[in-house]
Design a binder for these strands. Structure first.
Length: 332
DNA sequence: ACGCTCTCTTCGATTGCTCA
DNA sequence: TGAGCAATCGAAGAGAGCGT
């Protein structure tokens, strides 16, 4: 019986995996596979097996809730030795032990949900802040429900909340409260609330409308839709390209235009504001309703949200809605 | 209780890269 | 060019959940 295989030379992939496990605490086999091994299940297992034999990681099996029932999956965590390796290589400077990164079983789903977002958007030009890094950056409370942050290419940082199907009202209320908290150095607070169930999505909307509504940004979206939009509209450019077929678009050259005044569109012979509501920003809709508009505005809304938006803006002068279809969303 | 199915674990065999 | 190891792949075996 020969020795079990161990790592002789730590390669970039190993560092990446260990660093991700350090930041995000746990990852499933599938997540690691998508991030590093482009669909090679066999080699993912092989690599993780060797990393474990070398003492850098541990593995465990859990049942994860999926659309179709539950699914058995391996999850991996970093060990003290793994953390030491990252420190030796100057990838981290924090003095921390593996036990401080351990998480309770009931919290795992939340972490894995945020990881899914990371996996889906990492290659699309977004960067991520894990929840510990985010809370440290702004000295937020440890118990904050915020799962982390996603940062767009042009530097806008969204604080991410993920709401599971059948979330309690109490949880939604807590999120609402937290989203309204501001922190020094954060500037505007952009909130991204992702829903894994439609009941909660509706409940949240209702709660939002009943609130005092002084938030900076609240984008409330179904999880899968959010993934599509974020993949497709990384910067203003993609939005402009998509709506150009409805009229020529030009940027507003004022110094600091209001969020909804950033683009003009020449529509039906008139110069109007072109408003991006594809992220279903509830605060933006509020502003459209309250402000006295100095010119007409065309709101670009995802077709599935159009009825709601129309309903919300009934009676408001100078606004019209153009629905963006599923197909337009997918086109490149 | 039983077999079926699926994932995870383990390992041998092969390919291919990098460095001396 | 050869040593040594990472990258790949296929396959056998273990064990958990599921339906009957």
């Amino acid at each position: 019986m020969g020795e079990r295989k161990t790592i002789k030379r730590v390669v970039e992939t190993d560092e990446g995996i260990l660093y991700d496990l350090y930041r995000f605490r746990i990852m499933t086999r599938e997540q690691i596979e998508r991030l590093y091994f482009r669909g090679s299940k066999a080699y993912t297992y092989r690599k993780m097996y060797i990393l474990r034999n070398s003492g850098y990681i541990q593995s465990k099996i859990i049942m994860r809730a999926k659309k179709k029932g539950r699914e058995r999956t391996a999850i991996y965590t970093i060990t003290d030795k793994g953390i030491r390796l990252l420190r030796e290589r100057g990838l981290i400077d924090e003095d921390i032990e593996a036990k401080d990164l351990r998480i309770e079983r009931q919290n795992m789903e939340g972490y894995l949900d945020f990881n899914d977002l990371y996996v889906a958007l990492k290659r699309e030009g977004y960067t991520f802040l894990d929840s510990r890094a985010l809370k440290k950056k702004y000295q937020m409370e440890r118990g904050d429900l915020c799962k982390g942050a996603v940062v767009t290419e042009d530097g806008r940082e969204y604080l991410v909340y993920i709401v599971r199907a059948g979330a309690k009202d109490q949880t939604l209320r807590r999120i609402m409260k937290e989203m309204n908290r501001s922190y020094r150095q954060m500037g505007k607070r952009h909130n991204l609330v992702l829903f894994r169930g439609l009941e909660s999505f509706d409940a949240f909307r209702t709660m939002y409308l009943a609130s005092d509504r002084v938030f900076d940004t609240v984008c409330a979206l179904p999880y899968t839709y959010a993934l599509n939009v974020l993949k497709r509209f990384k910067t203003d450019q993609e939005f402009v390209k998509t709506i150009t077929k409805y009229g020529e678009v030009e940027p507003n050259r004022e110094r600091m235009p209001e969020e909804y005044k950033r683009h003009f569109i020449f529509h039906n012979g008139e110069k109007k504001y072109a408003v991006n509501l594809l992220m279903n920003d509830l605060t933006l809709m509020d502003r459209m309703r309250r402000d006295r508009l100095d010119r007409k505005a065309v709101l670009f809304v995802y077709e599935a949200f159009a009825d709601r938006v129309r309903e919300y803006l009934t009676g408001v002068q100078k606004v019209e809605i153009i629905e963006i279809t599923d197909q337009e969303l997918r086109l490149c």
